[in-house]
């Protein structure tokens, strides 16, 4: 059943100590994600959405359970090895962008390639091409403080995409944006999903969450619903979306 899954999570548990009380952030999570899927992860604050996202992004380690990424067991890997996998397969998009303020838009996008040891000329070409694709061709040399929210998030997306990851993890990608910039960002993410990238969006925003073909709902560290929309329904949503 999990042959073509790129992410294969079974029985993951994670507990945090909050004051006196242990907080069960993830309880026996089981989740398989296939290449090219579009998932949304919704639920109230403190339900464990972000913890799961960080777990999938190899930023956090489960207490118990198994997590296979591209068929590779990750629980026993060293920090170095996990960093390598992260660099290879995973792109993060953050709610508050997390661009480095002293670096220009282009330099921010180049950063993952710099960490991966790509030659300056090549990474410069690649990054400016991607930024141009995202409509920021005229803003390459600008510092983040001179860019609008929507532009900042597009730089953030470019940075996540530059290493050509297989999975894009977006934590409230439109949370800090106004309606139209939010729509822009959503369109970009979905465009890349249609081209084959796996997209997982964590959000409070029902309108955004409902666009995904597979919708997960979490409460108190448990995935309570896992809904796959039929193709027809998706078509309807897409038509609604384009008519807006």
């Amino acid at each position: 059943m999990t042959d073509n899954a790129i992410i294969n999570i079974s029985d993951i548990n994670k507990t945090y100590q909050v004051g006196e009380q242990p907080l069960h952030a993830l309880q026996n999570i089981k989740l398989n994600i296939k290449q090219g899927e579009y998932l949304s992860l919704m639920g109230p604050s403190g339900s464990g959405k972000s913890t799961l996202l960080n777990m999938i992004g190899l930023l956090d380690r489960p207490d118990t359970g198994q997590y296979q990424l591209q068929g590779e067991n990750t629980e026993l890997l060293t920090e170095e090895q996990r960093a390598l996998l992260r660099r290879k397969y995973i792109g993060f998009v953050f709610q508050s962008f997390h661009l480095i303020p002293r670096l220009t838009a282009l330099e921010n996008v180049e950063l993952p390639l710099m960490l991966a040891g790509v030659k300056p000329k090549l990474r410069r070409e690649k990054s400016s091409k991607l930024l141009s694709e995202l409509g920021l061709g005229n803003h390459l040399g600008q510092l983040p403080k001179h860019l609008s929210g929507g532009q900042l998030q597009r730089v953030g997306i470019a940075r996540a995409l530059i290493t050509e990851p297989t999975i894009l993890l977006a934590d409230e990608p439109t949370g800090n944006l106004d309606q139209s910039s939010g729509q822009e960002v959503t369109d970009i993410l979905e465009r890349y999903n249609r081209n084959g990238i796996t997209l997982l969006v964590v959000t409070h925003d029902l309108a955004l969450g409902n666009r995904a073909r597979r919708q997960l709902n979490m409460i108190d560290g448990v995935i309570v619903t896992d809904t796959r929309l039929s193709t027809i329904k998706i078509k309807q949503y897409e038509q609604q979306g384009s008519s807006q």
Binding site: G57, E79, A83, H98
Partner: peptide, 16 residues
């Protein structure tokens, strides 16, 4: 701190 966290999420290891 924020930058360090970001670098890690971009694939930098503690050693780097």
């Amino acid at each position: 701190r924020e930058e360090i966290g970001l670098l890690k999420s971009l694939g930098a290891s503690g050693r780097e």
